[in-house]
Amino acid sequence: MLSYILRRVLYAVPIALAVSLLCFLLVHIAPGDPVNAIVPADAPQAVVDQIRAEYGLDKPLPVQFGLWLLKVVQGDLGRSLATGRAVTDDLFVAVQNTLRLSLIAAAIGFAAGTLLGAIAGAFRGSWIDRVAVGLAAAGVSVPHYWLGMVLVIIFSVTVNVLPAMGAGPGGSGDWAWNWEHMRHLVLPAVTLSVIPMGIVTRTVRGIVAEILNQDFVNTLRGKGLRRGGILLHVAKNAAPGTLAIMGLQLGYLMGGSILVETVFSWPGTGFLLNSAIFQRDIPVLQGTILVLALFFVSLNLLVDLMQTALDPRIKRA
């Protein structure tokens, strides 16, 4: 098992390299000249050229990529064009905020989705099943920026019990697990949890219903196992497929919360990305995308390893 883990980690290295190349290219292929964002429109050509040279933007793309990668592996993502601060500093704070938000949202969404899906799968065709399927469809279909705004209107404007924006007193870098801060997390986390809740519900329902139709469940009943004993078998059989979908969803939550973070002004990576895009802040953009992509790669790796540990039929060789 240990050598299997090691090998899988090594496989992830070329993937990470390809991901970083893609991040780099994406930003450079996109239209718009980043220098225009920094200098005034009437700046003399000499100044424009000087700035271009300072940021290394005058060199050919492969060289730029090489230089950038060399710094990246040393933990240096450059400086923001807009603020002049080190990208890693801002990113460090933003990643923590996004992790808090997406992990809480995942916990809510995964717990609700697993429960709903398991009940729906076990009582397929009943009214409980129809309610769960309806909730799942609604969760997947409702645009979450719209849901976020509706929640703000209800809970912040009308009832006025929860804050509409920000990460609490002290700004983005001053988080603490107390109610003063956590109440800011409630609305964005609930909003963000709705899509994974729907997807996990649908997946778990399908998996559980399929498992319950398999012959071995009859064997378990035939052995005299009660509901609890059978549930244990269903859970272990359902775990690999469920974990796979959860890993993917957590990855999407990490990177896909741009809209929700923007609606709630949550100072995470999505918020950072959004402002970097509008300011053509290439170092911030590249750094953020890279970090998010690497999160995705490591999550998938983690899920693969967990699946292998749970399902003996997956080859370890």
Partner: peptide, 28 residues
Amino acid sequence: EKAMADIRGRVVSMVFQEPMTALDPVFT
């Protein structure tokens, strides 16, 4: 049903047709 669960496996038990699918694949 509760009493049936005590009877199954203890008083009467069954061997199924297809041993590949009648055994749980993820338990030893």
